[in-house]
């Protein structure tokens, strides 16, 4: 972990239009939660459906995408990554510092608002809020790692990441049962299933399996990104 890299990354990430987009998304989630609470009242099934479909399935992956690519993508794009790479800091350490910033940002902007939205909609009943908050937490950390890796590997990380998030997790996930075992969303939902006391959420993946897969993905993606940064080439545009 390198303090300077952390500081620079954090400032770059949250210093511009990206930050406004992230803030807008969190505010929107909370606004919708409040709206539902006010119009519909407390209904735990609705809470589960809403948080599952909007927070975990849409908001968290998008957050992971924006933040995961935002901590290193722009620097590679305009070439200013050379300033960091030419310092005597180990490449894996650079990645780790950036991953830390990404993970914290997604937790702050995605997981915490999800938890708060759950509280707004259902209070502390059945530990729903906690369950979904935990799901959002692990999912956002996992997505950050995945998209950080993608950003190091390709200049078009955002588009490929989208294709993964939308097509794999979205379309295929609905139609092809096998695909669900490899879906970050399903892993995180198994956590919700375990935490919340009511039977509102079901996941196709057992908790133990999900836990292992999450750990493997997070550690593996971060490690591999460090390796790829070692051989990063900046030549060419596309």
């Amino acid at each position: 972990m390198n303090g300077t890299v952390v500081r620079l990354t954090y400032r770059a990430l949250l210093g511009g239009r990206r930050a406004w987009l992230l803030l807008l998304m969190s505010v929107l989630l909370l606004a919708m939660a409040v709206l539902l609470r006010v119009t519909v009242g407390v209904d735990h099934q609705i809470t589960a459906d809403f948080l599952g479909a909007v927070a975990v399935a849409a908001l968290v992956p998008l957050f992971g995408l924006i933040v995961g690519t935002g901590v290193i993508g722009p620097e590679i794009d305009d070439g200013s990554i050379v300033y960091v790479l030419s310092k005597p800091i180990a490449r894996p350490r650079i990645i780790l510092s950036k991953f830390l910033v990404a993970a914290c940002a997604t937790v702050l902007f995605a997981a915490v608002p999800t938890f708060v939205a759950g509280l707004v909609m259902s209070g502390t009943a059945s530990r729903i809020a906690l369950g979904f908050g935990a799901a959002a937490l692990v999912a956002s950390v996992a997505y950050s790692a995945i998209f950080l890796l993608l950003s190091v590997v390709t200049r078009h990380a955002v588009v490929y990441g989208l294709a993964y998030a939308l097509i794999w997790e979205g379309l295929l996930g609905s139609f092809v049962p096998g695909a669900r075992t490899l879906s970050v969303q399903q892993w995180s939902l198994s956590l919700t299933e375990a935490i919340s006391t009511r039977d509102l959420v079901s996941s196709d993946v057992r908790l133990a399996v999900a836990g292992v897969l999450l750990a493997v993905v997070i550690v593996g993606a971060t490690w591999y990104a460090g390796q790829r940064l070692r051989v990063l080439s900046l030549a060419g545009e596309e």
């Binding site: 998304m25 919708m32 479909a53 908001l59 998008l62 995408l65 993508g73 955002v158 989208l162």
Partner: peptide
């Protein structure tokens, strides 16, 4: 470009997910 892509996706996909669910 990267931020533009992410922002456009967010606008379309998130609005659809949110509105559809609601």
């Amino acid at each position: 470009r990267g931020l533009g892509v992410a922002a456009i996706i967010t606008v379309f996909a998130l609005s659809f997910a949110a509105i559809s669910t609601l």
